[in-house]
């Protein structure tokens, strides 16, 4: 057993020596990490849904009644050439009427006696490839001859964007609070470990232990607690999400309704976040205590 192995063993022994303290520390860190995991899932779900909604969002450009078929073809080409346009569908008067009938299913008397060809104009439904370009697409479409009105559902997009912003901020706040709590808990546990090893440390100093030698077991102790908590939290959150997912609406299953993304497109984000955080809080938390109580 070389020095490195010895230091690892010392770190592990420290954990076992006060196993009840280790257990309660990891319990709290698991709890905070799991809460954070829920927020990461929420964040990811909102973002995916926002992206989906943005793809579904589009604008409707109404065509003047006088437009000939050739003119309509020309307009279609014009719109297709605008950067940011993903696809374009032509909706003739007939299908516009059918759509309206669908919308007013139970109140069809609204439509009775109306001249459908006058009420419902033909239109293009334009979808965006890139939501950032929605405004410029709208302006470009409005300028095209033969288009008399462009309807653009910006209130929905605004609402959806602001939801995602709120969720992002919330995630940051929750993450920060969780970090502070976890670092505090770990550093407190390491403080106790340093105290209970005071005698060893004193003797080590007289014998001529380097700072690295004294510090390493405590840093490892913190790191092991952090990573182990991350692993447990990951298992909990994975099982929890997979079970919940089977009972929740899934993304894309019905248009316009919030749906959940499958875990296969989520797990690695959570795993990476957990490992990085676990290591960070473990190493940083123990370093704080070592600097303060070991005076090295």
């Amino acid at each position: 057993m070389g020095t490195k192995m010895y230091l690892v063993k010392e770190g592990y022994d420290n954990l076992r020596k006060h196993s009840s303290k280790t257990f309660s520390t990891m319990l709290i860190i698991c709890a905070t990490m799991t809460i954070l995991g829920v927020f990461i899932i929420l964040f990811q779900n909102v973002n995916v849904n926002v992206a989906t909604m943005r793809q579904e969002q589009g604008l409707q450009a109404f065509i003047e009644d006088s437009a000939t078929d050739d003119e309509i073809d020309y307009m279609r080409d014009e719109i297709n050439n605008i950067p940011g346009v993903k696809e374009i569908t032509y909706l003739d008067k007939e299908s516009a009427f059918e759509d309206a009938k669908e919308q007013f299913k139970d109140q069809e008397y609204f439509l009775e006696g109306l001249d459908k060809l006058q009420i419902f104009p033909a239109s293009f439904v334009v979808k965006f490839s890139d939501i950032e370009k929605s405004e410029s697409v709208r302006e470009a479409v409005e300028k095209i001859d033969g288009i008399y009105k462009v309807k653009y559902n910006s209130t929905t997009i605004d609402a959806v964007s602001s939801i995602s912003k709120v969720v992002n901020i919330f995630l940051l706040v929750v993450g920060a609070v969780m970090l502070v709590i976890s670092v505090f808990i770990i550093s407190n546990t390491i403080k106790l470990a340093v105290y209970s090893n005071k005698r060893e440390i004193l003797i080590m100093r007289y014998i001529g232990a380097t700072n690295r030698f004294i510090k390493t077991p405590f840093i490892l102790e913190g790191a092991i607690m952090g990573v182990l908590s991350a692993a447990i939290s990951f298992m909990l959150i994975s099982i929890g999400y997979v079970v919940a997912y089977s009972k929740l609406p899934q993304v894309g299953s019905s248009l316009g309704v919030f749906g959940f993304v499958p875990y296969t497109s989520l797990w690695y984000i959570i795993l990476i976040a957990y490992i990085v955080l676990g290591l960070f809080i473990g190493v940083f938390g123990s370093s704080v205590s070592i600097r303060k109580y070991l005076k090295v």
């Binding site: 005698r199 007289y206 014998i207 001529g208």
Partner: peptide
């Protein structure tokens, strides 16, 4: 400060209270 541990390795200490683990 970094050299202190190596200075101390030149000395073997024995105390009145033994200081054993």
């Amino acid at each position: 400060k970094k050299e202190i541990p190596f200075l101390r390795r030149k000395f073997g200490f024995v105390f009145q209270d033994f200081r054993l683990l």
